[in-house]
């Protein structure tokens, strides 16, 4: 069986800066994997490389056995951006954003058909956004905004989801809601790679964790990955105490 995400010997450089150093990663389908690391550890670069936005110097990326160009054309890849990357004042409604997830399934004019409307309704219900569907996207709370983008990936029926900091700026209750939703998606066979700063969240959410500091420091069961020795390597002594506090 093909791995959902397979990254082999992948190195990425921005000019002279080494962003990813010989990264290897193999993620079976149906897993939720937490991607951990400091700012500048290469988390965003790894996402961009998997999405095919940044070319790798060398290495190989496969998504469910396909190159990323094939995977994108087949609509296998879903993407939930960081809040900072979204123009929240853009005049689109929640339903418009979620419907954009369907564009890959539509003809060139992107005119929704009944199946697309069904997928939209379904995605809004699963994320509890049905009542807010006609709101402008910026008129949502932090947690609702994240759910809107997760709904877009659900509408797309993306098999592999990349979520960039889905818990940033989200209150505790919404966070629990999102964790539950992501766990369900994993249980249904979707594969999720979730970058997060919130180490406390990892054991609840993830089957696996990957600790990145340009290279892979640890990958495996969250309890193993969150071992203080690993965290010290990734986060340095500065946050070591914090890291210990989280894992205790």
């Amino acid at each position: 069986m093909n791995a959902a995400i397979e990254v082999t010997d992948t190195t990425v450089r921005y000019g002279d800066v080494l962003a990813l150093d010989n990264v290897n990663l193999s993620l079976p389908p149906g897993r939720v994997c937490g991607l951990l690391g400091t700012n500048g550890s290469g988390k965003s670069t790894l996402f961009k490389t998997v999405l095919g936005l940044v070319p790798a110097d060398h290495g190989r990326i496969r998504i469910l056995g396909h190159t990323n160009t094939q995977a994108r054309r087949k609509g296998l890849l879903g993407y939930v951006p960081q809040s900072e990357q979204v123009d929240w004042a853009f005049p689109v409604r929640v339903r418009d954003v979620v419907m954009m997830g369907r564009y890959g399934h539509m003809s060139a004019r992107r005119r929704p058909r009944p199946a697309d409307h069904q997928a939209l309704t379904h995605a809004l219900e699963r994320t509890h956004l049905s009542d807010l569907a006609d709101r402008q996207i910026g008129a949502l709370s932090g947690g609702q905004r994240k759910r809107a983008f997760i709904a877009r990936a659900i509408a797309q029926n993306a098999q592999v989801l990349l979520l960039d900091e889905p818990f940033a700026g989200v209150d505790k209750r919404s966070e629990e809601h999102i964790v539950e939703l992501l766990r369900q998606l994993g249980a249904e066979g979707h594969t999720l790679l979730v970058s997060t700063h919130d180490l406390a969240q990892v054991p609840d959410l993830c089957d696996q964790a990957l600790l990145l500091q340009r290279r892979v420091i640890a990958h495996g069961h969250p309890a193993h990955v969150l071992h203080p020795d690993n965290l010290m390597q990734a986060f340095g002594t500065h946050t070591d105490q914090e890291a210990r506090a989280w894992t205790c």
């Binding site: 999405l51 095919g52 936005l53 160009t69 994108r72 054309r73 087949k74 609509g75 890849l77 879903g78 993407y79 951006p81 990357q85 979204v86 123009d87 853009f90 689109v92 418009d96 954003v97 954009m100 997830g101 564009y103 890959g104 060139a108 004019r109 992107r110 005119r111 877009r152 797309q156």
Partner: peptide, 20 residues
Amino acid sequence: YKHRDLTLYAFDPVHAHAMG
């Protein structure tokens, strides 16, 4: 003919890319 794609591009070009 292409207004939905143009709005997609204006709103989230990365998502457009991710969908092929």
